[in-house]
């Protein structure tokens, strides 16, 4: 096995969709140990479907997904989570009827000590500590996003999938999310980020990948990408 030398996440020829439709159409993607890759693309190009396929929530038609050399394609989501993948989904999806505390407690994987504990999450995200006993649906958008991140961390993942974490947040909250992600990278966590906010993507990513109609149509280093605004204009319709 080439686990030690290869990238942490290695997707090859990944195809998936819903009831036969081809939404992810042959994706090859690597995320290195400790790296941060940002996926850009217009609405509906299949970014969330790609994330869901890696997480096992959508079954791939074909292709492979390896984490540190271990094949994950076709496994159940809970097995993939236990293998070291954490998900912060689009729309945050905190458990509305559960309190903040419960949202975090049920994400703790028992019988496996790891770096992250509920107490450490509260230290990292102090605004959650103040709201322990509030229900998930009583939180602000920013707080919900922090809760979703904290919940994913409690699985002690090696790779974090973040799907549009800045979407719908106030600027201050967006900066908070950015800081948290930067801090996590410093601890060596690898991140696959879907982001429509270019400023955020540029600030965080080492590498930028652009998707269109289920395929990757462009990839480059962040600095390189910033130097070629025509790419952004062509694929994303922004200046």
């Amino acid at each position: 096995m080439s686990a030690a030398t290869g990238p942490l996440l290695e997707a090859r020829g990944l195809r998936s969709g819903y009831r036969g439709s081809m939404v992810v159409d042959g994706i090859d993607l690597d995320v290195g140990e400790g790296g941060l890759v940002a996926i850009l693309g217009r609405n509906g190009v299949g970014k969330t479907t790609l994330i869901s396929t890696i997480m096992g929530l959508v079954r791939p038609y074909s292709g492979s997904v390896r984490l540190a050399g271990r094949e994950l394609a076709g496994a159940r989501p809970d097995a993939i989570a236990r293998a070291g993948v954490g998900l912060v989904p689009q729309g945050r999806r905190v458990f509305a009827p559960l309190s903040v505390e419960e949202n975090l407690r049920i994400a703790v994987r028992r019988g496996r000590a790891g770096r992250w504990t509920v107490e450490r999450v509260y230290e990292l995200l102090p605004q959650l500590a103040e709201r322990r006993s509030h229900r998930g649906d009583q939180l602000s958008g920013g707080e919900q996003q922090m809760l979703a991140i904290g919940r994913a961390l409690l699985g002690n993942p090696r790779l974090l999938l973040l799907d549009e974490p800045s979407d719908g947040l106030a600027p201050a909250a967006v900066r908070g999310v950015e800081q948290v992600i930067t801090g996590l990278r410093a601890e060596g966590l690898a991140v696959l980020l879907v982001e429509q906010n270019l400023r955020v993507a540029f600030a965080l990513a080492d590498e930028i990948v652009v998707m269109q109609k289920g395929r990757i149509v462009h990839r480059s280093g962040t600095t390189e990408f910033r130097r070629s605004p025509d790419i952004a204009r062509r694929f994303l319709g922004v200046a």
Binding site: D78, A81, L87, I106
Partner: peptide
């Protein structure tokens, strides 16, 4: 509330 999400936390 959200079966998929519960799976996604392992």
């Amino acid at each position: 509330a959200d079966r998929d999400m519960v799976q996604a936390i392992g």
